Computed example of a mutant assay.
Amino acid sequence: MPSRSDDPVAAAIDRAATLIAQDVVALAAANPVVLIDGRSGAGKSTLAARLAARWPLAGRVQLIALDSLYPGWDGLDAGVDRALEWILRPHGRGYLGTWRRWDWERETEAESHAVDPALGVIVEGSGILTPSTVGLGDVRIWVESGEPARKARALARDGETYRPHWDRWAAQERLHVERDDPRMLATRIVDVP
């Protein structure tokens, strides 16, 4: 197995996590919100996990993946609406938020999870950078990666479960990119090979 220094994807994500941690420190906020957007397979989840592991502030950070909120394969926009209503708006007002996990197998909502307004939050997922969320995200990341590499990573990760839905999901991502221009809403752009 190659070391991280031999893996250009891992190296790019490590560099980005370090820079984003510096962005978080520069905010001088006790409970910052980091939003990480990008198309499927770009490296959002890996980047979010690396950032959470090296969170630079006292206390833990709450890491929430939109994969846990999207209500099914046609639910990109609905997942973002849920993140706004259940997580970002309450957190921004200093209120306890509560979100419900989507059970992909049963195709229904499952257990609830609390979001502590006193702690920082990382929300990662396709679609999270929109004009509605931009004012609620202190650090806003767009992860850019070419389609062949993204598709290979996503299908290696999720295999045959995802393959029949790739085009359907990609169409929702394309609409998001055209409508919301998340790259322009980002405070930092991360290029992943």
Rank of each mutant, 00 (worst) to 15 (best):
E85G: 07
W55H: 01
A78D: 13
I122R: 05
M184N: 11
V123S: 03
T161H: 15
R188T: 14
A154L: 13
G127N: 09
P193H: 06
L19D: 12
E107Y: 04
I13F: 01
A21D: 05
R140Q: 06
H165F: 14
D180L: 13
R183N: 09
R163T: 12
G127T: 08
R50N: 08
I87V: 08
R15G: 09
P131L: 00
A48W: 02
A170R: 12
E111F: 08
D81W: 02
A114W: 15
G41L: 01
A28D: 07
I64A: 01
L66H: 10
I189R: 03
K44I: 01
E124L: 06
R106W: 13
N31G: 05
L57K: 03
E111T: 13
E160W: 10
P148H: 05
V25G: 06
A118Y: 12
A152M: 03
P131Y: 03
W102L: 10
S5N: 04
S145L: 04
A186N: 07
T161C: 10
G59V: 13
R153M: 15
V34N: 00
D6I: 10
S132H: 15
R60N: 06
D6L: 15
A17G: 01
A65M: 15
V177E: 15
R60P: 04
S126G: 07
E144M: 14
I141H: 03
G38K: 12
V24R: 10
S3Q: 09
A149V: 08
R153F: 14
D6W: 12
R50Y: 06
V61T: 02
T98I: 10
W166G: 05
A26W: 07
Y70C: 13
A42Y: 11
A65K: 14
S3V: 05
I141E: 07
W99I: 15
R157P: 11
A114C: 14
I20D: 07
R157K: 14
R60H: 12
R15Q: 12
V115M: 06
A78Y: 01
G59F: 11
M1C: 14
R89M: 10
D6F: 11
S126T: 06
R168D: 05
G146A: 10
R82I: 08
Y162L: 15
R179W: 12
A21N: 05
L185T: 03
T108K: 15
G94R: 01
L84Y: 04
R101G: 02
V34D: 01
Q62W: 05
R39V: 00
V61F: 00
D81I: 00
P193M: 10
I141L: 08
L175P: 02
L96P: 09
V33D: 07
W102K: 12
V192F: 03
W86E: 15
D7I: 08
R163K: 11
G127Q: 14
G159M: 12
L88F: 01
P90Q: 11
L84D: 03
H165K: 10
V24C: 11
T187N: 14
H113V: 13
V123A: 05
D77R: 14
P2R: 14
W73K: 15
A171Y: 09
W166E: 02
G97K: 07
I122D: 04
L51P: 04
V139M: 09
E147Q: 08
P148K: 02
D37Y: 11
E107I: 00
G97S: 07
